[in-house]
Simulated scan of single mutants.
Amino acid sequence: MYTIDLSGQVALVTGSSRGIGAVIASRLAAAGASVAINYRSNAAAADAVIDEIRAAGGEALRVPGDVSDENAAEAVVKTTADRLGRLDILVNNAGVNRDRLMLRMTAADWDEVITVNLRGTFLATRFAIPLMLRQRYGRIVNISSVVGLTGNPGQANYAASKAGQIGFTKAMAREVASRSITVNAVAPGFIEVGEEGGMTAGMTDDQRGQVLSRIPAGHFGTAEDVASAVLYLTSAGASYVNGQTLTIDGGLTA
């Protein structure tokens, strides 16, 4: 049986106080990594994730900060490395959506999504890379979306940000591969995330049926499915996987 051991490693998961990010953080901690739980505003949710990790015997640190802000992103990375000793794994998960058809989309809708999703990925990576270069080791995983591959009506801003993450992933992989640093992306499809719903939130039964009919697997995915992919990409077993986008969509984009 193949097991993943991240003992002695430190991971920073942006936007990990809830949803997919929280599950990713918990899985990394269960594999032995010390995990920095980053969030922008919901300290109570972050503390709940930390309590769960600690109850299971793991180590977690609360690191607030909006990674789309340059000074805050630098502080988040620095605090993680200072408090936990190093930084081996960065998962760029923080993101928002402001879905509207183009005729109704405002410049503010566009700017917020691009700023959080794409600029946040850039900034967190920008400050993490020097640490990884000095260590001559690192794993970066960007949480994109199948929407960045296929597009979706009403999500021009979101699709652009997620496609941008994929391009960013490919460029960064070429820049840092010689230092044993890998940069990959995970592109989730329709994922149900507990009470938050994920991409399936707000769907009518008819809409759910229509979407399910397009998914060869015949069901929606879970946050655990996404976390499993991230866990693999951060492992030693993925050392020769670089610049790739792993779709977690039940065959939707096959």
Rank of each mutant, 00 (worst) to 15 (best):
M132C: 06
R62M: 07
V193F: 11
I53A: 06
G237M: 14
I129L: 15
I215C: 11
T245Q: 10
L101K: 11
S228D: 14
A238F: 04
T125G: 13
A254C: 09
R54P: 07
A43P: 07
N92V: 05
G197W: 08
D99Y: 10
M203N: 12
R208D: 14
I140H: 03
M102A: 13
E74M: 15
N93Q: 08
T222V: 14
G243T: 11
A22S: 13
A160M: 00
A236V: 15
V193I: 15
N97Y: 12
N38V: 01
M1I: 12
Y240K: 12
G164M: 01
E224M: 10
T115V: 11
N42A: 08
A33F: 05
I166M: 15
L90S: 05
T125P: 00
S145Q: 02
I191H: 07
S41W: 08
A128S: 06
R83K: 14
M132W: 06
L90M: 11
D88N: 13
M1L: 13
I114N: 02
A72R: 15
G151M: 10
R62C: 07
A163D: 06
D99A: 08
A124I: 05
A156L: 10
D111W: 09
A36H: 05
V67Q: 01
S178W: 15
D5M: 11
V226E: 12
A185P: 02
I191T: 08
T169V: 07
D205H: 10
R98Q: 12
K170G: 05
M172H: 09
L12I: 09
R208N: 06
L84V: 01
R86D: 12
E196V: 10
G154Q: 05
G189A: 07
A229I: 09
A45H: 01
A238D: 02
E196H: 15
I24V: 14
V63W: 00
T80Q: 02
N117H: 04
Q165F: 08
A94V: 00
D99G: 08
M203V: 08
V96E: 09
